[in-house]
């Protein structure tokens, strides 16, 4: 009885969508007119041969893995600095919480302003003599994708900082006292003691971040709309465009299924392994 609502929720948000999507992907459907006729594997054929969806998936995977690892390292270093060198980090942690809380659309707009040809970054670069003409960073094949990653890193590194800081706080003090009495150097302590003890927590944090990074949509929507030349076409954005701009629900269904399968293949094994490891602790 206590579970009825959650079952309904799971049904509405997980099981029903899956069944519905499988249906869609084998049909010719538009947003206005669903299930016009069954078309077998046509949508899948078209997805692999007629669209760039596989490259979009590759983009998403590269994005998720890169940002989650970069942010983990950055976030851990910042957390370690705060933990070891700042006595009362309340103000700092409050400040660092802000990017995390900012609506991603606003994050996108802020970075768009910073990176625009008339923005501060461009004027900084030209003052430093690195460029002669203002460049369109977000419109440049070389810089667009890293820019999305930069904005994402700005928003999400604080998440890692807060979680790793808590993980650091939960480490047993006496081990470090023992190490200090043994004469361990700070660097030795970090690599031989802190890091191995943090490893399980860090793995969890990495996973959570990676799962979220797979879902990225807002930043691309605001900053680049998938461009230039499909450089930043992450899957959620591609599917959204197929469904709500091109109205081809059948193809969108097929794309979503493929995307879901890829994400599951990448994350689920680690998720469950991690869960089991956690349960054993």
């Amino acid at each position: 009885m206590m579970l009825l609502p959650v079952l309904a929720g799971l049904g509405a948000f997980f099981i029903y969508p899956f069944v519905y999507l499988i249906g869609l992907s084998f049909s010719k459907s538009t947003l206005a007119n669903t299930f016009q006729k069954w078309v077998g594997w046509d949508n899948f054929d078209w997805m692999f041969t007629g669209t760039n969806f596989t490259s979009s998936i590759a983009t998403t995977v590269i994005f998720a893995i890169t940002v989650s690892i970069v942010q983990l390292i950055l976030g851990l270093l910042i957390a370690y600095l705060l933990y070891t060198s700042v006595k009362n980090g309340r103000v700092l942690r409050a400040l660092i919480l802000l990017p995390l809380m900012t609506p991603p659309v606003m994050v996108g707009i802020a970075w768009k302003l910073l990176l625009s040809p008339t923005g501060w970054i461009n004027s900084l670069l030209s003052q430093a003599g690195l460029i002669e003409q203002p460049i369109s960073i977000l419109g440049d094949q070389r810089f667009a994708f890293p820019s999305i990653m930069l904005a994402d890193t700005w928003q999400w590194t604080p998440f890692i900082v807060i979680l790793s800081y808590a993980a650091l706080q939960s480490l047993p003090e006496d081990v470090f006292e023992a190490a200090a009495l043994d004469g361990a150097h700070a660097r030795t302590t970090f690599f031989k003691l802190t890091l191995p003890m943090l490893a399980p927590a860090l793995l969890s944090i990495l996973l959570i971040r990676m799962i979220m990074a797979f879902k990225t949509f807002d930043l691309v929507f605001v900053l680049t709309q998938g461009g230039p030349g499909g450089q930043t076409d992450v899957s959620t954005y591609t599917i959204w465009r197929t469904a709500l701009q091109e109205f081809d629900l059948g193809l969108a269904g097929a794309q979503t299924l493929l995307f879901a399968i890829v994400i599951s293949l990448v994350t689920l094994p680690i998720v469950f392994l991690n869960n089991k490891a956690e349960a054993r602790l």
């Binding site: 799971l10 979503t256 879901a260 599951s264 689920l268």
Partner: peptide, 28 residues
């Protein structure tokens, strides 16, 4: 209640990207 099956399902539904639910929920 639901042993480990339900928690696992919820975990899986969290891993699944929300775009999965977008079209079906739109229709619903």
């Amino acid at each position: 209640v639901g042993k480990s099956f339900l928690p696992d399902m919820i975990l899986a539904s969290y891993v699944a990207p929300p775009i999965i639910a977008l079209i079906p929920m739109f229709v619903l």
